[in-house]
Design a protein around this nucleic acid. Structure first.
Lengths: 230, 230
DNA sequence: CGTGAGGTTGATCGCTTTCAACGGAGGTGG
DNA sequence: CCACCTCCGTTGAAAGCGATCAACCTCACG
């Protein structure tokens, strides 16, 4: 498991992505992964917490009969695998070539109890994750298919796209099936909604994995909802 | 706002519900509320964190057009209102007469940074909340109406019912509409699924707010899913 | 060139929603 | 004490949205 992994850097303290990198004595490793590798599986021992440095990963739960719910797509700067208990409660796949920092979970928790500001940061992280999950629940429970897809594109534009202005070209590292499982739809419905948005002129699809947002205002209208950030 | 509130106890350190009560110097108050009072609203300043001592509350988000998503029903022992940022991201209503401990949020966070074991406990709490939200996402995104209702009853039986054996009588402090908004269904669908379970003999409904589970094994089958606890 | 994965599109089905009517419980005021 | 009203829950009939089943396309890869 986790073949193709190269240890690039060990016990580093030079975090180029400032957020979680500078934790002394935690024996971190930065590793490179290639697309489609699993990072860990549901039920695995949660020995590590991972920080995405480059690339995109996908966390999901699978029901016994195969139905899957994608919980989140994680981008650089995000932390995954911080769980209560000793086993992962969801699986995680790499969606694109990635660089990921691996931090032993126990060491991280110990460091957090030694250094209050780190503990506070972890708590902040957990509560903001909670807020994201709540947004996701609103989407899953309340919104129609077209609203879901529009909301998804907007959220992705904020995450991946650069802040402002023209940079409204979005790259989708995930498949239609991944998107569908994230939104609680089928892949056919996702595809249909995308072509609907294309026909309406709100977006362009030069390639299946590339989306250009033409009319972000109308897209926000389509997303409806109280997506306003506080 | 919050009329009918009586301050019962102030700056206490005698927590009868052990979990969160014994935090010195946090100026806690235990208050009594009656049914249908709002505890706080979405957007309110998050000055307090609340611990449910008795009763049940309901946290929800409302979209601009009125659609509502219930995020959780909280029972005694649970903590609510621990948010990132200075405003509540969801509203909270009291569903039954309740006793609730109110803890100033800033004082709690300060106490957490002074005392690592408290910080760790808060982090544990947040991560287990996260796990619950993930379960909820699976339910919202993957399950059919009948699976949702069955899962809901089982979860409620675990929460409210006493552990084992015969105590399979569940009291529902929430309305059908509350349940529907929690499950991403309409209240009619919830009602229909309940009568379907009644006709199938899995449950009894002596009163609309009282459910008796006759066949918990079949109910678990109806809930399907990987609801297994790890 | 064959193959398989991912994506799009069409036709049909069915579950859930929507709209509507009804009944019981609780509360208020005449 | 009863009439009246409102809220909550149940049930029925019809409509609609998304799922399902299926065909076809493109592209990458061996």
């Amino acid at each position: 498991m986790n073949a193709h992994v190269q240890v690039i850097e060990a016990n580093t303290s030079s975090g180029e992505n400032a957020s979680w990198g500078d934790i002394p004595n935690t024996r971190q490793h930065v590793q490179e992964y290639s697309s489609h590798e699993p990072l860990f599986c549901e039920g695995d021992e949660a020995n590590y917490v991972f920080e995405i440095l480059e690339g995109v990963v996908c966390c999901y739960r699978v029901m016994c009969d195969g139905r899957r719910q994608v919980l989140s797509f994680s981008y650089p700067g995000e932390l995954i695998g911080l769980v209560q208990g000793d086993n992962h409660r969801y699986g995680c796949d790499i969606l694109s070539d990635a660089r990921i920092r691996r931090i032993p979970r126990r060491m991280l928790l110990k460091a957090a109890s030694d250094r209050p500001e780190l503990g506070g940061k972890l708590l902040q992280y957990a509560t903001s994750e909670l807020a994201l999950m709540q947004d996701h629940s609103v989407m899953l429970g309340c919104k129609s298919a077209s609203e879901k897809v529009a909301s998804f594109l907007l959220a992705l534009a904020k995450k991946s796209g650069g802040e402002e202005a023209e940079s409204l070209m979005i790259h989708l590292p995930m498949t239609r099936a991944d998107i569908a499982d994230y939104l609680g739809l089928t892949l056919e419905t996702v595809s249909r909604q995308l072509t609907r948005l294309k026909i309406a002129g709100l977006i362009g699809l030069p390639q299946p994995q590339t989306i250009v947002v033409h009319d972000i205002f109308e897209l926000e209208n389509s997303a409806e909802a109280s997506d306003d950030t506080y």
